[in-house]
């Protein structure tokens, strides 16, 4: 409770927690957006989501070591991950795409392990990071610090999300993806090559994760086995927001980031994740309750 008192006595720290939470939340939202896309279109829960993020980070790190500006690394990581996603689709996902959800979880979980070990072999088990060369802003006499890279990541994440939303709305391929999501059979009857749509969707998701990973490696640190945290957060955001609810994913992502930071401050870092998952249970119970009300009403 002492920690709560601090927030009352010096509310400025709440601002710090809120800002950091929202900025980190945007990156979560980006990865979650990809997961929602794959889940909605292909009915696959991709448990290798976090590994795609980390792989994106390692790609940027590799290019960075070759002397390429990390911001240029963002599209490069996205491009490489697009190819990786496409290849993985053709090798693995194509065989399970119309199978039961449980099989897809197993298969993508297997992919996650494979990717972890491959990254470990290729890039090594060490913790890596890339310095984007940006500075920190000080507000309120240094009590609040805002990292420029976090702000930049925030806007890049939002812009990428917006581009994606427009792409799905306006382009021919985007429409095909949405049609497939709505009703695969009907889309197929109307001449949509659903296999291509699936491949594109999966590759697109990988590319989004790659971009998110680029932001992660510039802001925090990466390591071949750190992917799970991103998978779980994406999963949770999608569950809270619902599939196919772009605005919901963004808000859930930002909310999750902020909630995590406050929980970490108030209850200690060990309860940061526990608090968030408890929150998930509460949200689901509440939803269930509301749905039940609705059902009763219909009766």
């Amino acid at each position: 409770m002492d920690n709560l008192l601090i927030l009352f006595e010096a509310p400025i720290f709440s601002l710090q927690l809120l800002i950091d939470g929202l900025l980190i939340g945007a990156v979560f939202a980006l990865a979650a957006y990809g997961m929602a896309l794959v889940w909605g279109v292909m009915k696959i829960i991709n448990f290798a989501q976090g590994e795609f993020v980390i792989l994106g980070g390692f790609i940027v790190w590799t290019f960075f070591k070759l002397g390429i500006n990390p911001f240029l690394g963002i599209p490069l990581a996205a491009a490489v991950l697009f190819i990786v996603g496409w290849v993985l689709y053709q090798i693995v996902i194509v065989r399970i795409v119309e199978e039961d959800l449980f099989i897809s979880i197993l298969a993508t979980f297997g992919m996650a392990i494979l990717l972890q070990q491959l990254m470990n072999q290729i890039f090594g088990a060490d913790v890596q990071t890339v310095d984007p060369g940006l500075d920190t802003w000080f507000l309120f006499d240094g009590a609040v610090t805002v990292l420029q890279i976090k702000v930049v990541s925030f806007f890049i994440a939002i812009i990428l999300g917006a581009i994606l939303a427009v792409f799905l709305k306006k382009t021919r391929l985007g429409q095909a993806i949405r049609a497939t999501a709505q009703d695969t059979r009907a889309a197929r009857i109307l001449g949509v090559d659903t296999n291509k749509v699936y491949a594109t969707t999966f590759a697109l998701n990988a590319a989004i994760c790659g971009a998110a990973g680029a932001l992660v490696v510039m802001t925090w640190v990466i390591q071949p086995f750190a992917g799970l945290a991103y998978t779980i957060r994406s999963f949770m955001i999608v569950i809270v927001a619902g599939i196919g609810n772009v605005a919901g994913v963004v808000f859930a992502g930002l909310g999750l980031g902020a909630a995590e930071n406050f929980a970490g401050f108030l209850f200690g870092a060990e309860f940061q994740a526990a608090f968030v998952f408890s929150l998930l249970v509460v949200i689901l119970l509440y939803r269930n309750y509301k749905l039940r009300l609705k059902r009763r009403y219909l009766k």
């Binding site: 950091d20 779980i232 930071n261």
Partner: peptide
Amino acid sequence: IDDKLPKELTDMTATLTKVKAL
């Protein structure tokens, strides 16, 4: 401060904010 960092630790912002405060 006596924080236990989770295994899947990616960010210490919350703990460090506490350090700034205390």
